[in-house]
């Protein structure tokens, strides 16, 4: 049984890749970009590891148009992610897109066999670390150094589409929790919205409530 450390999932995200996509945010990142909007998913944490086969069932059953792998660093768990994609594709031929803080060239030159297999199973890849000083409103990307690679011809039609921000997907759940998905167009967005709306992460809130 192959395990994948998963931080979060969402079955229908419209701002991280073409169409409505199932998104898997993996837990753990060895790069640690300054100003990362998801620092809570940087530490390696095996407490929420999930069986790849079960997760693949869920994805194949609920995804509309494709699968996006984000994190955390997907290529830090390339074997498991590649296995997940293979398992999904056994069930459905979904479009697969992934983020990585590595560059495509680095992965191709120095990547592990697992990272190569992972690259070989992707349709789209956003590569490169997030650089706060190059923050920009780009399609599916946060800083200008990051690139969108069309690794297959599945989404060739999107090559010349306008390169501007896909926006944010903000959700208020029934339990009154709030979350947002996507790549902010401006730097410091997370801090700004947390201060403005008085948001605290649910984990922190629950701990305080429990005290």
């Amino acid at each position: 049984m192959t395990l994948l450390d998963v931080a979060e999932t969402h079955p229908a995200c419209t701002v991280l890749g073409p169409g409505s996509r199932y998104v898997v945010w993996v837990q753990g990142c060895g790069i640690g970009c300054a100003g990362c909007v998801s620092p809570q998913w940087i530490p390696v944490d095996h407490s929420r590891a999930r069986d790849v086969a079960g997760l693949a069932d869920d994805i194949a059953g609920r995804a509309a148009d494709g699968l996006t792998i984000s994190g955390g660093e997907p290529f830090a768990q390339a074997d498991a992610v590649a296995a997940l994609i293979a398992a999904v594709r056994e069930r459905r031929d979904l479009s697969v897109m992934s983020y990585t803080g590595y560059t495509l060239e680095h992965l191709r030159a120095h990547g592990s066999p697992g990272q190569h297999r992972l690259l070989g199973s992707l349709d789209l890849l956003v590569d490169g670390p997030y650089l706060a000083h190059r923050q920009a409103a780009l399609r599916w990307r946060g800083s200008a150094n990051q690139r969108l690679h069309f690794l297959t011809g599945r989404h060739a039609g999107l090559r010349d589409a306008p390169d501007h921000s896909a926006g944010l997907q903000i959700e208020v759940a029934a339990d009154e929790t709030v979350r947002w998905l996507g790549v902010p167009a401006v730097a410091g967005f997370r801090q700004w919205i947390e201060d403005r709306l008085g948001l605290v992460p649910s984990d922190t809130f629950q701990r305080e409530q429990n005290r």
Partner: peptide, 17 residues
């Protein structure tokens, strides 16, 4: 990288309460 954790609202919580 591309998403937030789940939040609870604090400043508006009292008002909403």
């Amino acid at each position: 990288m591309s998403g937030s954790p789940k939040y609870h609202t604090v400043s508006s919580g009292e008002i909403r309460r």
